[in-house]
Simulated assay, not measured.
Amino acid sequence: MRELVWLAPTATIHEATMMINDERVRNAASDMLMTIGNSHRLLILKLLLEQEVSVGQLGHTVGLNQSALSQHLAKSRDKDLYQSSMKPTLGIPKCCRI
């Protein structure tokens, strides 16, 4: 997903058109929009932009149980939208940050 090219606000109409004509760019943008198109994942990303937060705190704030939160985090992690640090002995996410 790191190949995703975002249209800069300063891009000319010609530059934007050229980027949109590239099927890889369209597919990557579509994929990213589908990932953040879920209201829970969008809220999770908003919270992570504000501060690093523990997984437990994140679940409490968003109002999701551990299983549902884990699924949303996995989909976001697969797209490199956040990073997590692990508890060394347990191998589970401890804190998340963008």
Rank of each mutant, 00 (worst) to 15 (best):
E23I: 12
V25Y: 10
S30W: 12
I36S: 02
P88Q: 08
R77P: 01
N21E: 15
A28I: 08
Y82P: 00
T61I: 11
L81Y: 03
A16G: 12
L7W: 10
L64W: 01
G91C: 06
K79N: 13
T35P: 02
I44R: 00
S54C: 10
D78L: 10
T35N: 06
K46M: 08
S39Y: 09
V62C: 01
I13P: 06
I13A: 12
I36Q: 02
L90H: 11
E3A: 09
S54T: 15
I44G: 00
G56A: 03
G37F: 00
L43S: 07
P9R: 15
T10S: 14
I20E: 12
S30Y: 14
L47P: 01
D22C: 09
M32Y: 13
I13V: 14
M86G: 03
L47A: 01
A29F: 12
G59Y: 00
S76K: 01
W6D: 11
D22G: 09
I13L: 13
N27L: 10
L48R: 00
L64R: 03
L69D: 06
L45M: 13
M1H: 08
R2Y: 04
L47R: 07
I44T: 01
L73D: 00
H60I: 09
N38E: 11
A16Y: 05
N65L: 03
K75N: 07
R24L: 10
L58E: 05
R41N: 04
R41H: 08
P88F: 10
I98W: 03
P88C: 03
P93S: 05
P93G: 04
I36C: 02
S67N: 11
C96A: 14
L90T: 15
H60T: 11
R97M: 10
E50P: 01
M32L: 09
T12D: 07
D31R: 06
G59T: 05
D80C: 05
T35I: 14
G91A: 11
D22W: 06
D31Q: 08
M86T: 15
Q71D: 12
N21T: 13
L45W: 01
R97Q: 12
L64P: 05
H14E: 15
H60M: 08
T61R: 09
K94G: 09
E52F: 00
L58F: 03
D78A: 06
I98G: 04
M19W: 15
R24S: 13
I98F: 04
D22E: 14
M34G: 08
I20Y: 09
Q51S: 15
V5S: 10
R26F: 06
G56P: 04
E15S: 07
V53T: 10
H72K: 01
V53F: 00
N21L: 15
R24N: 15
S85M: 09
I36R: 01
G37H: 02
A28N: 14
L47H: 06
D80P: 03
Q71L: 07
T12K: 05
A11I: 09
M34R: 11
I36N: 03
V62W: 00
I36M: 03
